[in-house]
Simulated scan of single mutants.
Amino acid sequence: MERHDVLVIGGGLLGCALAHHLTRAGATVALVEKDQLNRHASGQNAGSLHFQLEYRMIQHGPEVAARAAEALPLHLDAMRAWASLEDEIGEPCGVRRRGGLMLAETPEQLELLARKTALERAHGLDVRVLDTDETHALAPYLSDHVLGAAWCPGEGKANPRLVTHAYARAAARNGAHIAAGTGLRALRHDGREWIATVTRDGRERPMRARAVVIAAGIWTAQVAAMADVRLPVIPVALSMTVTAATAPLVPHLVQHVGRRLSLKQTEEGNVLVGGGWPAKFVHHGGDLDLDERPELRLDSVFGSADAARVVPAVQQLPVLRIWSGATSLTPDQLPLLGAVPRRPDLYVATGGSAFTLGPTYSRLLAQQVLTGRTELPIGDYSPARFGFLNFV
């Protein structure tokens, strides 16, 4: 029977990055992905590297924002990780860090921006509030309605079509066995190690591993259920828009403190507009179908177009495509990262800002899997914090 030190379930950025860090440390690793690598959230997002607290983290008041800010040490680590990522794995990943702006258009939003920035600076993030003149001097492409912005020079973007595959190739060079098109059918522990039943081309085979890491995105709860574990992973369907290419216009990552917005321009000249605009999951007989691509919502299409008015020139560009994807969140919007209680050597990684923080999540979790210790504390993100889930 095929045996490895670690079985990674999920072939997105987190799974492939985990395989890289684990094999780099000398572990034998198998990674299984039921579809193509990078097929889902990791390849369908807009590639933002947003280290400031996002709109969704601050819209529900100061207590929620303060809780979200507790994850800022991970943001700082991820900022450093992205800066050296291409050198580490030896391939271009489209990493461009030209700074990010979080905009305000009203006096009330400026006050919120100031409170957010003070909270971030207290945790060590390099960010400051620009007044109206400073904002428009730095970003003359912005609308006159913008009154100010929080400026974070370490923010930017990466190419989601490149990063995951680069991690996968780096892991394969270190000996990882990466099996795309391979589904998981069963997962159990025999008292000594994990036994997984996987299937490919209609043929089943067993695999053994000392440890298992679930990095399956919106399918995380389904996979965990195979091990008789209930995890509070909430699938969220989102939509994004891309325009036709134009001359260089927006060198920065642009967000908004008062509403959903994420806007950036690719190296090819296309402008990507997102920021959490919802799509709609497909239901069959009342059951959520996570395998079906979410449907677009007209209100999100118009809302996204309206949010982009902060860069007037963008609203003049033809739209090439609007697409949907899905990501996973937890009830408290913090990552789900670490060992699963009462399941020996079972680990999980999902939630939070999984693309932005992926290099950090994966490195820290690889350390925990192999040594039981991590460079940064991750206990606050453990599944154990959801004690009501009855890990039996």
Rank of each mutant, 00 (worst) to 15 (best):
D133E: 14
D87F: 00
L49N: 11
P62I: 11
L103Y: 08
E108T: 13
E70K: 12
H75Y: 14
T135D: 14
P92S: 01
T135G: 12
V129N: 07
D77L: 11
W82P: 11
L22H: 13
R115G: 04
L85A: 09
H20V: 04
A83W: 00
L49M: 15
G43D: 10
E63H: 13
G99H: 06
T135C: 13
Y55L: 01
A122T: 07
L112P: 00
K34Y: 04
H20C: 09
R67F: 03
L22I: 10
H75Q: 07
G90P: 09
M57T: 07
S42W: 00
A17Y: 08
L103N: 10
D35H: 12
D126N: 12
T106R: 06
E108Q: 12
H50V: 03
E63C: 03
M79W: 03
T106H: 11
G100H: 03
R24E: 15
L31C: 05
L85M: 14
E91P: 00
A17S: 14
G124P: 10
R97H: 04
G100Y: 04
F51I: 01
A69M: 14
E105P: 10
H20L: 10
L103H: 07
L112W: 03
L18E: 08
P107S: 10
A68Y: 11
H40Q: 15
L76I: 11
H20P: 02
S84C: 04
G99S: 05
V95M: 03
L72I: 15
R56Q: 12
A78Q: 03
Q109T: 10
E111V: 15
A118C: 02
A114Y: 01
V129A: 04
A41C: 12
N45Q: 00
E63R: 14
L112A: 14
H123F: 04
E63F: 06
P62N: 02
A66G: 11
R67D: 11
A25H: 12
F51D: 03
I89E: 02
I58C: 13
P107G: 05
L31A: 01
E33C: 09
G43Y: 08
T135P: 13
Q52Y: 00
M79D: 08
G90I: 02
A27C: 09
E120Y: 06
S84R: 14
N45A: 06
R67S: 12
D35L: 15
A66Y: 01
Q59H: 05
R97Q: 14
G15E: 07
D77P: 00
S48V: 09
R67V: 04
L13V: 15
L53W: 12
G94N: 04
L125C: 07
G47F: 02
P92V: 00
Q44L: 10
G15Y: 05
R98H: 11
E134K: 08
A122F: 01
A69F: 03
L101P: 06
S42N: 00
R98C: 09
E105Y: 02
V127A: 09
L119K: 03
